[in-house]
Design a protein around this nucleic acid. Structure first.
Length: 191
DNA sequence: CCCTGATTCGC
DNA sequence: GCGAATCAGG
């Protein structure tokens, strides 16, 4: 595979949207995340606060450019093979018993955030994150997608966060924040 | 262990 | 220019 104009464009677009190199690579197909990263660097566009970077350059945060509702003009031949929607198990506690692999998603677990005493900060973060949520359906969830449900399951307005999970956990960082409240989350000065 | 991006360096 | 291997961090 070579870096055709189109591919480079998609690369730029996705990178700009904050997609991870691996996601981009998967999307492009035929390349590894290393290739993507290498290309990104060669193209000069690199920095973008994420994961692990020695240079913590994060001058300006981009609130929200103008993400439109996603149209997929992609002639991409390979689409993710729909995962078998097995859905037997159903955890009872959000304890993180999930070994690895097989995380059907019978009925995911999360205790919807009510008007609890959760860190207002965490909640704010969640609300902010929900805008970026990938809005996945039950069958689209994987071991690596946040399984935090949003909306009313009884309506059309229901979906799962779907953002990258916090290694090992069932939710993305933001949702882990409100899902696993140690105990009384008062005003601790821990940060 | 999972993931992230950054760098190096042979091709 | 390319990207696997490696590195460094979360």
């Amino acid at each position: 595979m070579s870096w055709t104009d189109e591919r480079v464009e998609l690369l730029k677009k996705m990178w700009g949207e904050g997609q991870s190199a691996s996601q981009i690579a998967k999307e492009l197909g035929g390349v590894t995340r290393n290739a993507v990263i290498g290309k990104v660097h060669r193209l000069g566009l690199s920095n973008r606060a994420t994961g692990a970077t020695p240079a913590k350059a994060e001058p300006k945060e981009k609130p929200a450019p103008a993400p439109k509702a996603e149209a997929k003009p992609k002639p991409t031949p390979k689409t993710e093979p729909a995962r078998p929607a097995a859905a037997p198990a159903a955890e009872a506690k959000p304890a993180v018993p999930a070994r690895r692999q097989i995380i059907p998603a019978g009925q995911p677990l999360p205790p919807q955030p009510s008007a609890n005493e959760i860190s207002p900060e965490a909640l704010a973060k969640v609300n902010e994150v929900e805008k970026k949520a990938k809005k996945l359906t039950l069958m689209e969830l994987t071991e690596k997608t946040c399984k935090w449900p949003v909306g009313d399951p009884a309506t059309e307005d229901f979906w799962f966060c779907g953002l990258p999970v916090e290694a090992g956990k069932p939710y993305c960082e933001a949702h882990v924040g409100v899902a696993f409240q140690p105990m009384s989350s008062r005003r601790d000065r821990r940060r």
